[in-house]
């Protein structure tokens, strides 16, 4: 059984687990908000490229690609968000089970192992906890795979932003405006990349 045997100090550890999943959830919410911003930026870039006409044909192609990228990113993040909100429920379930098991263990310690029914109660609690932890491990693996996939997508976004910067240089009179837009893209994508790196290091369960 995973319940601590000495005292009821389990709460601080479990609070840590909950805090960690809340952190993951908040990080994903932040990226979702940024992805939404990219979508609007890409739309603006498309309009700007249209206004620039022939001078910004290359930039126009890239801004369309960036829009598609933003839409893909939003989809990825929505699926990540679903996964983490499920994880918050699972982690909370584990915390509750651990707390119940720990308090029951404290009661058994005071009463002695000879009390009828305590072995069965311990076994039931341990089984429930193991099931919940296995579920959490599966969620953790899925979340890590999804984060890695999103990281690859964001790499592509970074390449598109760099190419847009190059194309902006050929934008004639619109060049400064196009350069500003492509710089904004690059900055936002770098911000998402950093958030994903933080996310990639977080674990729902301890190894």
């Amino acid at each position: 059984m995973n319940a601590p045997e000495r005292n009821l100090n389990f709460t601080s550890t479990n609070r840590g687990e909950l805090a960690r999943i809340v952190l993951v959830n908040e990080e994903i919410k932040a990226i979702v908000a940024t992805a939404f911003r990219i979508n609007l930026m890409a739309l603006n870039a498309i309009f700007l490229a249209k206004r620039a006409g022939n001078a910004a044909l290359g930039f126009g192609v890239l801004s369309n690609e960036l829009r598609r990228f933003a839409q893909d990113l939003t989809r990825h993040m929505a699926s990540l968000r679903d996964m983490t909100s499920g994880s918050v429920g699972s982690v909370t379930g584990v915390v509750q089970q651990q707390r119940n098991s720990a308090i029951l263990a404290a009661a058994i310690r005071l009463s002695g192992d000879g009390v009828p029914g305590v072995k069965d109660a311990r076994k039931r609690g341990a089984t429930r906890l193991a099931e919940q932890q296995a579920k959490l491990r599966t969620l953790d693996m899925r979340l890590r795979a999804a984060v890695e996939e999103t990281q690859q997508l964001v790499e592509l976004g970074g390449v598109l932003a760099r190419s847009a910067k190059i194309e902006a240089a050929y934008g004639g009179g619109f060049s400064p405006a196009l350069m500003q837009v492509s710089t904004d893209f690059a900055e936002v994508i770098a911000q998402i990349k950093r958030s994903l790196e933080v996310l990639g290091k977080e674990r729902l369960v301890k190894d």
Binding site: N100, L104, A107, G117, V118, A121, G125
Partner: peptide, 8 residues
């Protein structure tokens, strides 16, 4: 919940 943990 704790009593039920012991005796469901």
């Amino acid at each position: 919940a704790l009593w039920l943990e012991f005796k469901p």
